[in-house]
Write a protein that binds this DNA or RNA. Structure first.
Length: 460
DNA sequence: CTGGGGAGGGGGCCC
DNA sequence: GGGGCCCCCTCCCCA
């Protein structure tokens, strides 16, 4: 019997065939996994055994690529992997994703899934988790349109995007979201290089897992912080945007006192509170990922480490991880009441306040000479204060610098330290608390000199 | 264009 | 676990 194969492409879309074939192949593999057919790899997660196919794991995970290529000749018959860094439930989600292209994320598991994905070097999963978290925090204006349906309160199913060989991604129900590919394409490449070194097949050493201190964090998380946070949101004020404003950027607008702006302030305060609560919710779901370094260097004693779910950084203490996470979440709980600038840490706020608003540096700003509290004068420039020696004052000329030691705008600017909502009533922080909050009203370019009197500025 | 300094941010670690 | 200190790095501004 003779079959004619003339111009078959005229009737069949080869792309459709490819997708259908890939989908079918994946289904078959998943079926084989569930029936434990041809499984040649065992994965032990906290005592629970998972069976899988080496080639599938190899193709899906950088960690398994490294592990499977480390065998005697890379082709050892029995391959076993043991994990204590994440739970069996989390690995189930990961494994289901590997074999189906569907990632079941919820507010309860997203952090741990992301940690596990980071550990297993599955950048696509990390990307989806980051997208999920980003959408849940609702801190990106740019992505609001495309990710509006995501919420921390609901369980969503991500399907793998382009190139993930899944034809089912278009049929995942109302909650199914495919991350915008354009947004993450560039970041994926950056993330990949950060997580895996120059080559994804390269062995990942313990040192490679450690964050390069010279690398910007946004490189490590694979996302530009400018994409992550609303630049208009004071809680999520970005370091870059803050600096770009220049010296005049800290000045509180005079129209602050209008009723409309008061309402605006209330709205901002409310949004700030909500986002702080969401950040707290994320912190509460933080898994205790330990022993990460030890897994990569079995010869050394496994050290207790907390791993950041957003990047490869590890820390010894959970508190340090919480502090570190602020650089990812954009949370800035310490506002300067004098200039509205917000900080991630109390010490940064204190340093800022002492430098900018208290002129605690006993150095003449002009000639850089050392001054004492007797020989130096404090010059007020808006809410900024700095010291100048007598000689420089005379050189500049008093006519050019308004001198009014009694000027109210030069009094101690109020700074209520602490997390939002906790500013008042803290005796320990009273050293820079002043009832006169109106001092935050910037007088613009006024230059005022007052006699140095630090008696009211002493710490505690 | 470049170097220096200020300001801010982040990590390690001690109390 | 929080607070705080020290150190280092990056960015920006300015001379």
């Amino acid at each position: 019997m003779l079959f004619s194969c003339r111009q078959p492409q005229r009737w069949f879309n080869t792309a459709d065939i490819t997708v259908a074939h890939q989908s079918n192949l994946l289904k078959q593999l998943n079926q084989q996994r569930r029936q434990e057919l041809f499984c040649d790899c065992s994965v032990l997660v906290e005592g629970q055994l998972f069976r899988a196919h080496r080639n599938v794991l190899f193709a899906s995970s950088g960690y398994f690529r490294m592990l499977l290529s480390q065998g005697p000749d890379g082709l050892s018959d029995s391959v076993n992997a043991t994990f204590d860094a994440f739970s069996p439930e989390t690995f189930t989600v990961i494994l289901d994703f590997i074999y189906s292209g569907q990632l079941d994320l919820s507010s309860h598991n997203v952090i741990e899934v992301m940690s596990a994905a980071s550990y297993l070097q599955m950048n696509n999963v990390i990307t989806y988790c980051k997208n999920f978290i980003k959408s849940s925090l609702d801190i990106s204006v740019k992505d609001e349109d495309s990710e509006r349906c995501l919420s921390l309160s609901e369980t969503c199913s991500f399907t793998s995007g382009a190139g993930e060989e899944s034809s089912e991604q278009q049929h995942q129900g109302p909650c199914s979201v495919s991350p915008p590919p354009a947004l993450w394409t560039r970041d994926n490449s950056r993330s990949q290089s950060s997580f895996m070194g120059k080559d994804t097949d390269q062995e990942v050493s313990a040192s490679a897992m450690k964050t390069n201190p010279s690398s910007p964090v946004n490189e490590l998380i694979g996302a530009d912080p400018d994409d992550l946070h609303d630049p208009q949101d004071p809680l999520y004020t970005l370091p870059g945007s803050e600096r770009r404003r220049g010296k005049g950027g800290n000045k509180r607008k005079a129209s602050n006192s209008t009723r409309a702006n008061q309402q605006e302030d209330l709205d901002i305060q409310e949004a700030r509170t909500q986002k702080a609560e969401k950040a707290e919710e994320l912190y509460a779901t933080l898994p205790q990922i330990v022993g990460v370094i030890g897994h990569f260097n079995k010869d050394s004693n496994p050290s207790m480490r907390f791993k950041c779910p957003f990047c490869t950084h590890t820390v010894k203490r959970k508190a340090d991880l919480k502090r570190h996470l602020r650089c990812h979440t954009g949370e800035r709980p310490y506002p300067c009441q004098a200039c509205n600038k917000r900080f991630t840490r109390l010490e940064h706020l204190r340093s800022h306040f002492e430098t900018i608003h208290q002129a605690r540096k006993l150095v003449c700003r002009k000639c850089k000479c050392q001054v004492t509290e007797e020989t130096g004068h404090v010059v007020c420039e808006g809410t900024r204060r700095y010291r100048m020696c007598t000689a420089c004052i005379q050189e500049v000329g008093c006519d050019n610098i308004p001198m009014d030691s009694l000027d109210e705008s030069c009094e101690e600017p109020a700074l209520l330290l602490g997390v939002d909502g906790e500013e008042e009533g803290d005796a320990k922080r009273s050293w820079m608390v002043n009832d006169d909050d109106d001092l935050a009203e910037d007088s613009g370019t006024d230059l005022i000199i007052q006699q140095v009197d630090d008696s009211d500025e002493e710490l505690q």
